[in-house]
Design a protein around this nucleic acid. Structure first.
Lengths: 161, 161
DNA sequence: CAAATAAGTCAGTATTGCTGACACAATAAC
DNA sequence: GTTATTGTGTCAGCAATACTGACTTATTTG
């Protein structure tokens, strides 16, 4: 058995740690602006996720939301209930299946979601602009492959909507 | 004042939302493996962060950790205290400034941190390998510019260590 | 009709942030 | 050398978010 070429494990580890750290720092700051707005409205990050994905997938069901968010029904129930009660999200009984509750943002919910989205849009748009289109493509590509293989079909379906 | 060229806002928004969603899904799966290992040891994600940054910056102080993690002293105190008590982290009185507690991982802490790191290393290494070096450079570049401008110097100092 | 599914609910637990207040030792400033 | 500042630690309480487990109701499906 011949010797394999030496792969520089130290360099490799440095590159991995760089990705881990950038992911941590970027995610930390990325969530900060919406978190501050949410806190003033008496909400938290979980409310943002629900507003976001309901806004992005109008007519989705509770179970649809659960499979995107990968949290328990009980956890979702609390935040979704609050958003419905305060008039940010409305539900209609499903037409095909009357057990379903089809969810969508109310005008109030749309306005609030836009406010949250705008802070992240500005941040990401600036980063895209500075880094350039090739970098953006790489950014998508790496993130996509960090997602669990079993989840990639769902993610692809979501991001290409 | 002449008319500005029309920037396609719809396309733009789709690209931004793609980044937002990939960041969410990738981060969700990226934290899952360590979270499971941590849960078995009776720890949470906050413990991981402390182990990670102490491991990465041996000899760091409590205030050094606070400025990297951007959490309160009280929040850090709880998890750091547990990690010290259970023998994952040790502290030495600072030589120059005897108020400081210089933190480092014990062998037990190093072993545990490696276990956590390995799951993320495998995930990120696979993503890097699939996406290729140019994509990885773009991934770093975009993430770096998503970080708050005011934090970029600190982040750069950290990732280039 | 029986089984499965979609949704909702109640109760309890753990983690991780936060604020505010206070204490102590060591260092720096005057 | 007294005073102010800094690094660290601690107590107490609060809030958001996630979890498990058990159970109900309405509706659809086989």
């Amino acid at each position: 058995m011949r010797k394999l070429p030496h792969t520089n494990l130290y360099l490799r580890e440095e590159e991995i740690r760089r990705g881990i750290e950038l992911l941590y720092f970027a995610y930390r700051d990325f969530t900060k602006d919406p978190d501050d707005i949410l806190a003033k409205a008496g909400f938290g990050r979980a409310h943002h996720r629900v507003l976001y994905f309901v806004g992005r997938n109008p007519g989705t069901t509770v179970s649809g939301l659960l499979s995107v968010l990968r949290i328990t029904k009980q956890s979702l129930s609390r935040v979704l209930g609050q958003l419905i009660e305060e008039g940010f999200i409305a539900q209609n009984t499903g037409l095909k299946d009357r057990r379903q509750r089809l969810l969508h943002l109310t005008p109030k919910g749309q306005e609030f979601e836009k406010q949250l989205f705008d802070t992240q849009r500005d941040r990401v748009a600036d980063a895209y602009k500075t880094a350039g289109p090739d970098a953006v493509a790489g950014f998508w590509e790496v993130l996509f492959h960090i997602v669990n293989e079993s989840e990639r079909a769902t993610v692809l379906h979501q991001i290409e909507k």
